[in-house]
Design a protein around this nucleic acid. Structure first.
Lengths: 146, 146
DNA sequence: CTGGATCCTCCTAGATACTG
DNA sequence: CAGTATCTAGGAGGATCCAG
């Protein structure tokens, strides 16, 4: 028995790889885009600035916590600006920066790809599910997909 | 007190919104891309087919479970093909489909954006952190970011 | 060699309640 | 109006053992 097991070696590799991955710009961006609310916020703001409560209504179902959290991280990354107007009820406006607008453009490209190829994906899924039904012959309902 | 509280109304909205979001192709794609290993697998396979163990070595630190899970979902979506060669030790090859290659192309675009703008993001982050240090004047270490 | 099945542990989204 | 503070449940990811 060696002093380092396979699992230990893999774990060391994992740590190193993790650092590598995290330093990769592409991965950082992907992580950001993948956030459920980020794309929605960016999309909502792409038509112009909005107030907090506007966003809250537009993104129905978002909890104040998540909305704030999302907005903060995007602000930190320079995707949008937060402007406080100290009127009697406080008023806060959020607006995309140039960088944010550029990101919105990229998301348009992603959207285009998705809409072009989503049908192929669905067909592939149906084919795959049909095949595995033959092989597996157990769980008929293709209910869960994540 | 009305029969539906604010929270209840928001929850109803959440369910509806959730269904809407899930049916959105862009979101489905984003969900897929966001997976930590998906982009790496696609990138690895973009240079040619690979065996399971090759991938396992290439993506250092991935557990067999996650690798298999990732490969399965990509196979289901028609991104790659899985070819079993029933030799004495079984041999399995994974290879990108046309759809997968097209996806790799999209990821190149994403990568380009990321590399072009990552510096702006980092600058924005530094600025933001510097400002909040003044305001907050509490937690100095900017350690956690997700 | 290539995984399937199981258990277990974090981590985070979200609900809830409260404040300037 | 625009958030903050706190708590908890659920799920993703990993370790481990086992099988074809």
């Amino acid at each position: 028995m060696p002093t380092t097991t396979a699992a230990q070696r893999r774990e060391q590799a994992r740590v190193k790889y993790d650092a590598f991955i995290r330093s990769c710009p592409t991965n950082q961006l992907l992580d950001r885009l993948s956030d459920k609310w980020v794309s929605l916020v960016v999309a909502a703001l792409s038509t112009g600035p909005m107030r907090y409560s506007d966003l809250s209504r537009r993104l129905a179902g978002v909890s104040p916590k998540m909305l704030t959290q999302t907005l903060r991280s995007l602000q930190r990354d320079g995707i949008l600006t937060r402007t406080v107007t100290p009127s009697v009820p406080v008023r806060v406006d959020y607006e995309l920066t140039e960088l944010g607008a550029s990101l919105a453009l990229l998301m348009t490209a992603v959207k285009a790809w998705a809409e072009t190829h989503i049908e192929e994906v669905h067909e592939a899924r149906d084919r795959y599910d049909a095949e595995t039904e033959n092989a597996g012959a157990e769980n008929a309902g293709a209910g869960s997909q994540k």
